[in-house]
Design a protein around this nucleic acid. Structure first.
Lengths: 213, 213
DNA sequence: AAAATTGTTATTGTTGACAATTACAATGAG
DNA sequence: CTCATTGTAATTGTCAACAATAACAATTTT
């Protein structure tokens, strides 16, 4: 009989992907503010890696619209204005999510509804604790769950880019969106899930369109 | 009076952007076939540049869905299947273009219509000559013109990514879409432009939805 | 001979040094 | 003093060498 013991080899992702995620998290969580400059050398020193993978990570985030790079000059954290969220990003999100939900509608079953209910309950819990970070996370997770069901990598990455910029905006403008009362947020999501459970697009569509995160 | 003479300084774009465009053109035009492998070293040697900017260009094209990279293994030209065009890319394109057209509708004027008519005439000319490359280019140009009018860089880049993959599919499957007769292509575009000239979304929407490149 | 192991090679991932570009400060001319 | 010019420093863009990884061939074990 062979030993039960195994060395747990932590196979690391590429540096580029780790850096990408680190910067993205820092931006979305609000640790890096809009307009703030990112110097490749500083990041290199802070993270203890060379500039190569940092440049690649920055390049990706620039394409996603979270950073802005001026050639030969500098890269800064993007500004995401309310008007862009209202007139472009959120309509795009609705567009993408509409397509996702319509696509997966025939495949939706009780197991999915149960998963969604669980996330909703976690969202409610987060609201009770007024844990803004958790609220944003759980809110996103509901939508992400639906999008991921399509199993279309390109569609998922498109949605991911759009929604991360929306979240970024709300995090940096939480003072504007005075949400000391989260009841509306919960109601909207409950309404959305109830609509989805009918599996009737005619019922879902108007709810989704009205739903502004 | 000072001399009229000026040295024409050709300010070069970054290598990364040039390489990006070169590879993209090669893929979209069909010079690189789906599944074909791209070796960084080969590209480096052929183009006479180091692997740095090549890696960055490849990274961007991977995110656009024109290349597929397996970490530590290889990157190949993507396969874009008919089912993906029909069920995802083209609906996305319609979604994006719908949003674009609705946005710019109030601002559209005779000058724009004139521009569009000119491109349409060039498309008709290309069809007469059965110049597939020119046909694809002019076809794209009509849509691009409308999208560009939004002046939303993020939206434009989104559309650009989606449409380039659609074009890529059609170029690599031209034998499937036996288009020895381009009259339908011309009719559809003429119909679309006529609809747009009414500036009535209720008229435009069904035409756009029916229009499959 | 089949399966597991080891070594080899091709290729991508990462690094630190160098080149090119831009902004800004210092200098000089009107 | 104001404007143009030149030099300098900070930063990004590019390069060539090195490290890490994964596929495959060679070897050994059963």
């Amino acid at each position: 009989m062979s030993s039960e013991f195994r060395f747990s080899i932590k196979k690391t992702d590429t540096l580029r992907n780790q850096i990408y995620q680190d910067i993205k998290d820092a931006v979305i969580s609000g640790k890096l503010k809009p307009g703030q400059r990112l110097r490749e050398q500083d990041l290199s020193r802070d993270m203890g890696v060379s500039r190569g993978p940092i440049r690649e990570a920055i390049l990706l985030l620039e394409r996603e619209g979270l950073l802005v790079t001026q050639t030969h000059r500098e890269t800064t954290v993007a500004h995401v204005e309310k008007v862009e969220v209202d007139q472009l990003l959120n309509p795009l999100r609705v567009l993408l999510e509409s397509y996702c939900i319509q696509t997966i509608l025939p495949r939706l079953n009780e197991a999915h509804f149960s998963d969604l209910d669980n996330i909703l309950n976690e969202l409610i819990e987060a609201c009770k604790n007024s844990d803004l970070s958790a609220i944003v996370k759980k809110d996103l997770q509901i939508h992400e769950y639906l999008v991921a069901l399509t199993e279309e990598p390109y569609l998922i990455s498109l949605w991911s880019g759009v929604s991360s910029r929306i979240v970024f905006h709300f995090i940096n403008n939480s003072h504007v969106h005075q949400q000391n009362d989260f009841s509306q947020l919960i109601d909207e999501h409950r309404e959305l899930l109830d609509a989805i459970k009918t599996k009737d697009w005619a019922i879902i569509e108007p709810v989704l369109r009205r739903h502004i995160y």
